[in-house]
Design a protein around this nucleic acid. Structure first.
Lengths: 189, 189
DNA sequence: ACGCATACCATCTGTTTCGGACGGTATGGG
DNA sequence: CCCATACCGTCCGAAACAGATGGTATGCGT
């Protein structure tokens, strides 16, 4: 069986993050992921401790353990690890993205609820998306100048597009259900 | 402990679908979900067999088993089930939506790959999103006239907004990496 | 210099979700 | 009436998940 068959998206997050950052401990990964990928691909930190071990067993990472004290393990990419990562980057991506949006679920079932529910939902969503947009714009402002990370910022634009799309939708919906929109605090974005 | 604490999004998908469709078997749910919610909230059919049983134990559904043959169970909403569903619809929605997009992941790690990778990725994504947009528009065309389901079609608009946002992003990216966009085969559909 | 409080860091555990295999049941054509 | 085929429901091993737990460093007061 090919090694690649045993790899999940989680695996590539680990491989990729180490490729970008250099040798890292699980805790390093946890923080790095929390600041970047975590925004668009949720996952629990516990996997950042177990997954590198698996990858080390498969020969894609190389572990070095502190001899004493906390006995942290630092992982670095092996040649094979880099090869697998590059192969993945080069191969087709057949899956469509998946969304998990509780709000969308509630909207779908809105017939069952009370008339005011949708309006409340829309207002909440508008606020939430504005907030997230502000976060992204802030990140963008702070990091796009730094050459080292500029390339990684591209995904932020996708995130922003998505957020704006959602914001547009909920704003339009709010107007339809009969209220005027909240004044746009985040305009000009 | 409140019943609501034991309910997951999956639970509400089941409750909600039964509320909209009336009494249903697991297989009914499976098909109904596959045609609707499945597009924006993935989940495996096995849960549509186990989850209703749990909900029946909690008193939110009522099961009736065919006495012979396939012994299918038909579930119907109890008063309490309807109450829980409505309560959920009325309560705030604190979680932000989650995305899982392999393409976005690959894009984030693009520095590690070859120059051509991003272009290939973009082309694929453009094709995939156009295809999905066509599916949604087709559904919209077929169902918005039917009063019975018109209200449920609202979520389609959100789906379309998202798809268009993604399409815009990948198209812009493709131009930036130096190729002209593919002629728009799906326009006007 | 020592002990203690606090913040870091790593791992473990029980539970849910997941995807797919498997096996039973109906149906209609020969 | 039998068999092929399409339905339908359940089960299972593997992975993902959330959060608790416990060990390790750091620095502060004394």
């Amino acid at each position: 069986m090919l090694v690649a068959d045993r790899l999940s998206p989680t695996s590539y997050v680990v491989l990729g993050t180490i490729a970008l950052r250099g040798p890292s401990t699980s805790y390093d990964l946890k923080r790095a992921v929390g600041r970047s990928i975590g925004y668009f691909w949720h996952f629990p930190h516990a996997q950042l401790y177990s997954e590198p071990q698996r990858l080390a067993e498969l020969g894609l990472l190389e572990a070095e353990t502190e001899p004493d004290g906390r006995r942290r393990r630092t992982y670095r990419l092996t040649d094979q690890g880099l090869r697998e990562l590059k192969a993945w980057l080069a191969e087709p991506t057949p899956e469509h993205f998946q969304m998990r949006d509780i709000a969308e679920l509630k909207l779908f079932f809105n017939e069952v609820g009370e008339p005011g529910d949708v309006e409340r939902l829309a207002r909440e969503q508008i606020a939430a998306h504005r907030e997230r947009i502000a976060v992204y714009e802030d990140m963008q402002a702070r990091y796009t100048d730094l050459d080292a990370v500029a390339k990684r910022m591209i995904t932020l634009r996708l995130g922003l597009e998505m957020e704006h799309a959602a914001l547009r939708f909920w704003s339009a919906l709010l107007e339809e259900v009969g209220a005027q929109a909240i004044p746009d605090a985040a305009s000009g974005s």
